[in-house]
Design a protein around this nucleic acid. Sequence first.
DNA 1: TTAGAAATTTGACTTAGGTCAAATAATGAA
DNA 2: TTCATTATTTGACCTAAGTCAAATTTCTAA
Lengths: 188, 188
Amino acid sequence: MTSYIDKINTYIKTLDHDTLTALQSISSDKKYKKGDLLLKQHEICGKSYLLMSGIARKYYLTDGKEITTELYFENDLAVSFDSYTLQQPSREFIEALTDVTVSITHYQAFQEAKAKYPKLLALDLMLAEYYGMWVENRLFQFHTMTATERYLEILHKSPHIVQTVPLTIIASYLGISLETLSRIRAKV
Amino acid sequence: MTSYIDKINTYIKTLDHDTLTALQSISSDKKYKKGDLLLKQHEICGKSYLLMSGIARKYYLTDGKEITTELYFENDLAVSFDSYTLQQPSREFIEALTDVTVSITHYQAFQEAKAKYPKLLALDLMLAEYYGMWVENRLFQFHTMTATERYLEILHKSPHIVQTVPLTIIASYLGISLETLSRIRAKV
DNA sequence: TTAGAAATTTGACTTAGGTCAAATAATGAA
DNA sequence: TTCATTATTTGACCTAAGTCAAATTTCTAA
């Protein structure tokens, strides 16, 4: 599936000058401090955030508890998918876990650009497909793997997560309690 | 999210004659008997299956056990998403749970049609977005809900599933054992 | 209709993971 | 440095859900 990111990047490199400048004209950089919220619950996700540097996460609250649903590193694209797609209030927050720099693209401007530049429509499809496969893979893990197996998967495939993100957040991302994660780590 | 299906259907109704005939020219109907496999593991999912009638499911095998990942009813579109998107061998099977009639569209022909008819590209994006939101919602359920809560969710939002699909399959779809499902049902 | 197979339920017991509480360890600002 | 806060670990006990085995119930094909 990493190969699909390559495919997307390769595709972006083939974009013509006009398409590329159109895209740049509707994007702008912004910095956030550690702890800042890029998106709040109940807000409509009217922007996409491409992480240039730093770490961020997406999470929601269920009876007072924060459940992390996605972790973002450099070059990851952060949005609340359903809020962005349906332009309806978000169930999720997006939070900067460190100071971050992002490239922001507005939803509405991007919709208009897609109508004018079909290559952006194709790009949007690729991004949606990638996200679909990513979520499908995560669901697969919850459906069939134990907590220990899920932790080992992260440890092997995304060691940077374990190295940079607090265990409380990793535990909620794995869908287990902090104590259980600590015990799993104490073993292998 | 049902509203998004409405949006997709509304969009389809706005398709011009040429686009529509192009789509029809690359689609054909086919019937399968109960128990037939529309897609086998390790095959590349080179077709999409729009269910016209009957019930089908998608599942994979983990150490000999069948895990159902999706149930299809009339008007549902069945594909192994990553296999179809990446055109790589499928981890999943697609099986007819009853006699079914499907409208089959070939992947390759659809790719070519999308290049010629941009409205099909936009349609494809909507379908990918819908699937992404659907999977995200299922992941949410696995991430935060107990087995009982997941069962009640199905019971309320998709009662047709409980009425038509064997409990063994529903149990694996919920990620629980058959016995646990039976006990949940014995209560409320 | 009826025997055999398949689906579902029930019982007894085990286990992964949760909860609550307390003890350490690590970090960061004054 | 040092104190206070935050992060992580450890202990004791609990609970949801799994496993294995057997009993029923429901279908289905002859």
